[in-house]
Each structure stands twice: as structure tokens, then as C-alpha cells.
Nucleic acid binder design. Structure first.
Lengths: 356, 356
DNA sequence: TTGTACGCGTTATCAC
DNA sequence: GTGATAACGCGTACAA
């Protein structure tokens, strides 16, 4: 391809521009520019990478020629030569879960601002797919942001050994991590329900391997004990609208008249299930969500816990960028506090339905 | 780095393995494997890329050695050598808009199945940022999926010249495109409203540069004419919940008692604005959304138009993959039909409020 | 079937 | 300051 029928004498000094010096034989390379500008390839390289090491007039001339030829450094070649690709990868359990898009958006934006492009991977809530994605992407990426990982701590550590890795909502010692501490907000929610007179509430679990779920369950239980509220944990599920909807029968059978759902998606599912059975919220049943992802998207506003997922994404990228730049300190564990976001789905329990 | 203090005589034939034959001086390369397996680097390359051109036993032996050394072909080097990176890029106007996540997810999944990794870019509804993203990514990508592009047709054509490009929800002749034809569903919505007795409806515009918006506005107008319903178009906005909420005053002032919103997000915003004013849906006002993205996420279910964004994403990747594989036909224009999805937000207009 | 040798586009090292 | 030139890791005509 490079030389379909060129000179008989392959001159090793010539940059092998193919057919003589055609004005545009494919995208301009560093060699093309060097030749046209009458300098060496090294100089061209410097004109872009280290202008201060060159005479100003040289820089200008080279750049002029370059832009005239439409030359842009080939990132792939740069990557091979330097070992740095200028790319990051973000891996999440489920892009379609509304908790993630704001974070994805934030990560992409912040990464771009720092000069990185970002790969996106969807692990489909599967630890193995997560692992596969990471190994597949590792070679063409400078670092990872791994959100709500479902992998084992050991697996995470292995991956972190190959490439710089920053976690979001996953607490593994030694690995830089950004944690959205929903415990505070969730506890406040339980307190609020207690104030309203609830003496028995349910917690609708999210994914079993989820750090967030573990944290929330723990917080609900602790708050329940503190405020004298019985807590009924309901089986773990994928965090979806459907899951919430289908959990309603169990929910009603639990004797509770209030529920803290793993997240807003599940919460809205519960709303749907209750609505279909003719129950009204919050008169007959109180529902608290988590992550505050649907309040700005759907009506009615769910009483929920703020999430700050975009902030978390930005912070993660900053941490990663710092680590890649060598500006890193030891064991980083960043925590984002949360609060209860008042909505329209919480009230006192109905009177007569309290046989306990 | 490669040879801190090795032999004085640089032997050009030797693969330059650095310090003699250290078992693990960095990740194994093709040279390491070749040496360990007693074959040439070409053979190792073929063992992975073209096994059929090798004796089965050779393939096996090489692969054994490779996996023992933990060798994996370096994708960056492969890309530089072949010109193909095995990467795609997906660019969307706004990741956080719930219309896109399902599509993003689908694209990522389908791409992975076809052996591609995917970059994700968020253009923030800005044509210029879109252009920047495309040029920035072009060199490390084999092709693009460009969704709901806000760029001019000319710009799109230019970009398509540099890399294979498939459009979603944008109709540019000559460029392969996947179109979700919501016109049918929207027309059906207007018809339904007419059946219920509405004689005046509003259309709440989305982004001005959006193909989808143009299409929907046209469809609403045509259907309005056909079914004897006056159509009041309301100013264009970013397609957000807030935009819908803030449009409610104008909406109420329009004299209409039903609205077709650009999408579900805007529709839910309208729901919120109406709710805050004490109006109930659908008794006092009918609301129709579009894209069917929140029905499976939020309650109550909005009457809307099916979107099939995931299908569109998959189709786009298939088209792109075919084009990259050379299995492409001429001008491709794929259309996905839609239907009206019954919800709980549409009813006959209130009696007395019809001074027209 | 397998090995040789060169090119892919850049950066980095070392002279000049 | 600037120019040769060797890596970077791999694919692939061409030759054997």
C-alpha cells in the first residue's frame, strides 16, 4: 500500500512519502511536514510538544506549514511511542440506570477538560463482564474510573495494579475512592418517618454486591434502632422500576406502611404498584427513594436522598488525573455527604391499619 | 530504559529484549514470546491473527507460551500497523437526557459483540463541541455513530469523509442513517385527542436544530389539519424537565387543554407545572409525551409515543460494522416505525372551558 | 509452513 | 537550537 510502484532504489533517509511528493497522499505525517518545512522530524515533533526548546521563528514556521498541510499528530503513534494514550475508561454496571448518566456526563466533561477522551463500558451488573471490560481496555487507556463495581476487592486490586484506578461508591483500602455517603440522608429519612408516627418500615434492597446497598441497609437498621422503628428488609433485586413494582405485594404483606427503597427507580416502581392497587401516596403509604435522580425528571417528586453523582464523577476524574500526573498523595478516600430531599411522598401512617 | 547496562555490541538481529532474558521485564511483547517459543515474531503474530496459515501444533505451542507469559497483542501497536483501531465513537447531544442512555447501552453492547470498544462524547447540545469531539476522536477510531446531531449537513458530510459515519435521527442524503419515525405515533396521538373532543392543542417544541422536532411539529400540524384540530406551537427549548415546567403558563394561556410535548422529559415537566397550580391530569388537561423513556421509570405513566432508541442504536452499529467490513450497499436509510403508547394522561377536555 | 525485513508515525537520546 | 537515529510493538509482502 505505501509504495505501489515507486523508485527502484529505496533511499532509507527519505521519509518514504510514497509516490514522490504528491501534495496529498493520505493524511500528512510528521515526515511530510518536516520535508516541506525543510527541517527534521524531530523539530516538527518539538514544535508541537516542546515549543520552548525551539527558536520562536522555527516554531511558527513549522506550525504554519503544518496547518497548511492539515497536519495533526497521530495519537496512536504518540501512544505507542510514549506509552500514554490520553484516554480514560469509565465502567458502570448499567448505563440505563438513571443514577449513572449524570455521572457519565460529568466524567466525560471533566476528562475532556483535562485533555482526555473516554471509553465507556457497561458491565450489565455482572462482575465478570466488568473484569473482561477492564482487561480489554487496559492497554489503550491511561487509567480507569470504576463506578459501583460489583467485583471482589481482590479482583479490583489486581486490575488496579495494571492501570491507575479510581473507584466510585466502592470502598477498597489502598485504592483511591470517591464515596457518596447516603447513610446520613437515609438515617434522616428514617427519623422523619418516626416523627410522623411510623413504627414499622420496610427497606427494599438493591443489588447484593453493591456497596451503596450495604451502606444503606446498615444505616436504616441503625436509625431504626435509634428511633424505635422496626425494620423489615425485603429481598435484593436489580435496581429497576419493575423490581419495585413487583415488590409491592410483599411490601403490603410486611405490615409496614412506609418503605425506604434502594433508589428512586425502585421507589417509582413502588409508586406504580401501589397506584395500580388503588392505594394513594402518601395517604395510604409513604415512599422514600434514594439518589435524587428522578425528582428533576419526573412528577410527582419523590421524597429522596440527594446523590451528587455528577460531583462524584468529577472528583474521580480529578483524582485520576492527579495520579497520572504524579501529583498524588497516599491513600485517598473522598466522602460526599448527603441530605434528605423533601418530596411529596411521605406522611403519617393511616390510622386504623395499625394492629401491631 | 530498555538497556540500562547491557551488551556493548548492539546486535540488530536480536529483538532487543533489554537485560538479557529477564523473565518479566515489563509486559510480554511479541518478541518475548517469539524468543521463548523458539520461533520468529512473524509466527507469533500469525498464531493470533491468521492461525490457519500455520501448522496446528505450532499455533498451539506459541499460544501456550504466550498465555504462560501473559502475552496479549498490544492494540495500540496493532492500530498503528494496520490502521484499524477496533474502536468506535458515539457522540450524543446530552447523555443525561433519558432518551439516550438506552441507546448508548445498546450501542456499547452491540459494538462489543462486534469486537469494538466505544468512546463516548457529550456535545452538550452544541454543534461546535460536536465538531470538536469528532475531529479529536477521528484518528483513534474506525467509525462514528452520531446521534441527533445538531451540526449542519455540510459539516456532517465533511466529517463523514474522514471516517465512516452513521447517523441516528438525522436525515442527510448519502450518509447511512437510522431514523425513528415518530410522525406516525404523533399523528395517532392527535387523532386520539380529536376523538376525545379536543379542538385546540399545543405543541411544545424541542431543540430547533433537532430533526426529531422538525418531524414532530410537521406531523402534529398535518394531523391537526386532517382532524380539524387547531395547533398552537410553543417556543423551542432545550428538552428538559424544567423547560416543560416553565412552559405551563404559556400553555394555559394558549387556550388549549391538551399538549403534545417534544418528549417525555418535557411532558413530565408539564405535569409538574400543572400539579403545582392545582390542576389535575387528565381531568383538567391532557398531556402527551414522546419517546417512551419514562414510562418504564416513573409513575404515573405518560401517554406517549414509542421510541425504540435501543433498536436504533443496535441498527446503527450494525450498519457501521457492515460498512467497515466492506459489506455495504449504497445509500442506506433505515426507518423504525412507532405507535402511540396508551398511558394515563389523556382524556376529554373539561366542559365549560371551551369558549372557542 | 516459516523466517526476513521493512514500514506504521512519534518521541527520546545523543551528538553536533 | 537542531539533526540523526534508535526504540515503541506489531503486521505483512517477500523470500526461502
Amino acid at each position: 500500500m505505501p509504495s505501489p510502484g515507486s523508485a527502484p532504489e529505496p533511499d532509507p533517509t527519505a521519509p518514504a512519502t510514497g509516490p514522490a511528493a504528491g501534495p496529498a497522499a493520505g493524511p500528512a505525517t510528521i515526515g511530510t511536514v518536516a520535508q516541506a518545512a525543510g527541517v527534521s522530524r524531530a523539530t516538527v515533533s518539538r514544535a508541537f510538544g516542546q515549543p520552548h526548546r525551539l527558536r520562536p521563528e522555527t516554531v511558527e514556521r513549522v506550525r504554519a506549514v503544518a496547518s497548511e498541510l492539515g497536519y495533526t499528530p497521530n495519537p496512536v503513534a504518540q501512544a505507542l511511542s510514549t506509552g500514554r494514550s490520553g484516554n480514560l475508561a469509565l465502567v458502570v454496571p448499567d448505563i440505563a440506570n438513571p443514577f449513572f448518566p449524570p455521572m457519565i456526563r460529568a466524567v466525560q466533561g471533566q476528562a475532556e477538560r483535562a485533555g482526555y477522551a473516554v471509553f465507556l463500558g457497561d458491565a450489565d451488573e455482572d462482575p465478570n463482564r466488568e473484569d473482561v471490560l477492564l482487561t480489554r481496555l487496559a492497554r489503550q487507556v491511561d487509567g480507569f474510573v470504576l463506578a459501583s463495581s460489583r467485583m471482589s476487592a481482590a479482583r479490583i486490586r489486581e486490575q488496579a495494579e495494571r492501570r491507575p484506578l479510581v473507584l466510585v461508591n466502592r470502598d477498597v483500602a489502598g485504592i483511591p475512592r470517591v464515596l457518596i455517603d447516603t447513610a446520613g440522608g437515609v438515617a434522616r429519612a428514617v427519623e422523619r418517618l418516626a416523627e410522623l408516627g411510623h413504627r414499622r418500615i420496610a427497606y427494599l434492597n438493591g443489588p447484593a454486591r453493591s456497596w451503596s446497598n450495604t451502606q444503606r441497609l446498615k444505616a436504616v437498621r441503625a436509625a431504626g434502632a435509634r428511633f424505635d422503628v422496626a425494620v423489615v428488609p425485603l429481598p435484593a433485586r436489580r435496581p429497576t422500576f419493575e423490581a419495585g413494582r413487583q415488590a409491592v405485594p410483599e411490601l403490603l404483606g410486611s405490615g409496614a406502611r412506609a418503605v425506604v427503597a434502594f433508589d428512586d427507580l425502585v421507589g417509582h416502581g413502588v409508586l406504580a404498584g401501589l397506584g395500580e392497587r388503588g392505594l394513594s401516596v402518601p395517604a395510604d403509604f409513604s415512599v422514600v427513594g434514594c439518589d435524587d435522580v428522578l425528582a428533576a425528571q419526573a412528577y410527582p417528586p419523590l421524597t429522596t436522598v440527594s446523590a451528587r453523582s455528577a460531583e462524584a464523577g468529577r472528583a474521580a476524574v480529578d483524582l485520576l488525573a492527579a495520579r497520572l500526573a504524579g501529583t498524588s498523595t497516599g491513600d485517598v478516600r473522598l466522602t460526599l455527604e448527603t441530605t434528605l430531599v423533601p418530596g411529596a411522598t411521605v406522611a403519617a401512617p393511616p390510622h386504623r391499619t395499625d394492629p401491631h
